[in-house]
Design a protein around this nucleic acid. Structure first.
Lengths: 233, 233
DNA sequence: TTCCCCATACGGGATTTCCCCAATAGCATC
DNA sequence: GATGCTATTGGGGAAATCCCGTATGGGGAA
């Protein structure tokens, strides 16, 4: 899982770091972070406005792969308030260190998902009492949701050109046949259904595997599902 | 794709229809609608507070399968303002009819996605000028985002018990081996990796297929991904 | 003790998939 | 016309998967 620091990329009109800064300023937050995950590309894209020293420490410790905040939020529909995780040992481990860098335990992470399995995790943090946090949160949660959605949308669409260039373009026949395979049909079944030869089915599957970068048809099914090209049935 | 009307199910503590009504009342909207899609179950769950006559007409015309608002929002990360779609012929077709039932063209649809491919589409509509709509929207969008997320979360978790009861329980070995298969390894590869015989790999795959109700291993991979048991790699 | 699930393994053989090669035809674009 | 993509089809054969049955042993619950 490679980590790509988005703040290092050139975005002439927009600067994600300053977006995070403005969210913090508007809502009186300490820090904000965005992590975008693309399960197919196995990459994590991130931009944060945390202290540099904490960023370095975080990556050194490999927290991005075992931060319970990220793993929990990645499985959640609704925002995850960090308070929920105070009993978690891994959370304690991360925040024992984070404290030394001035990062508070008071925060929340908002997951946003796109149609191709991509996930954006937008986190904000503020050093304050539980009472203050509760009040602040209910006041700004809607705006944070909004910010999270648009940030993730922006990141995904900023990569759209790259995605189009790297996004496999399966022909409609290839997709159709993969869908039948995902539904449990054999190649001969699919040939019968579509009134073509099973040799033709084989050709389309091979082409589809190649475009998806899959070694086996099972892997191709998985990747196509991850890309939203076909559905599990 | 079966259509399940959630307002007809018994929810003693919560009533989704009154949730929609309260959102409309709070934000001075005319109507609200929620449509949840579960690709595994191939079902659409919906609850609306539109006039009954329009609901009947909508289903009669089969609009749920070709409403451009739904199809566009299902592909979007960010909320979709219906203004964007006024040039679309299918949109015009739907709203030519909707007008007769008092449904305005001024509205938006918010997509929310869960970790298992589920999608919730939350729509609201208000009969007003473009100016008024623009003002109202920017004022309430955050709260609507919030409402959308929690509504979808609620629906998904209301079905959680059912899901647990029907959720296949794969052994850790079965999951592990399916993950390797999803990663493109052959059975022999997996046997080498795990230092077991390929006959054992075969046994676990067969068991896994049986539990997942899959006819082929490719289908099992797909279903396991859909259930969040393994990931596309 | 019995039962169930899990993990491990095998026999024998049928079926299916996949590899690598070949080909034609239609359509769109430059 | 040349090129690229799509859809269609086939030969020959190796590799892999799958079917249906068998077995042992460990651990946990009733």
């Amino acid at each position: 899982m490679s980590v790509v620091d988005l703040s290092k990329l050139a975005y002439p009109e927009n600067n994600l770091r300053s977006f995070l800064d403005s969210v913090c300023e508007t809502h009186e937050l300490d820090y904000a972070a965005y992590a975008g995950m693309n399960p197919i590309a196995q990459s994590v894209h991130g931009v944060v406005n945390y202290p540099d020293a904490w960023q370095t420490r975080y990556v050194e410790q490999g927290f991005q792969t075992r931060d319970p905040v990220l793993t929990t939020a990645a499985r959640s529909i609704a925002p995850v308030d960090w308070q929920r995780m105070r009993g978690d040992e891994a959370f304690k481990t991360v925040f024992r260190e984070a404290h030394d860098f001035g990062i508070a335990e008071q925060g929340l992470t908002i997951p946003v998902r796109g149609p191709f399995g991509d996930v954006g995790l937008f986190s904000v943090t503020r050093n304050c009492s539980d009472d203050e946090w509760s009040k602040l949160k209910s006041k700004i949660l809607g705006e944070l949701q909004n910010a999270a959605v648009h940030l993730h949308d922006h990141v995904v669409h900023s990569h759209e050109l790259t995605r189009v260039l790297s996004h496999p373009s399966l022909s409609s026949r290839e997709v159709e046949i993969l869908q039948w395979i995902a539904a449990g049909k054999t190649q001969q079944d699919v040939a019968d259904i579509l009134n073509i030869s099973n040799r033709t089915v084989e050709v389309h599957l091979r082409s589809g595997r190649s475009k998806l970068g899959a070694l086996t048809t099972s892997q191709a099914v998985g990747r196509a599902i991850g890309l939203g090209l076909v559905y599990p049935l």
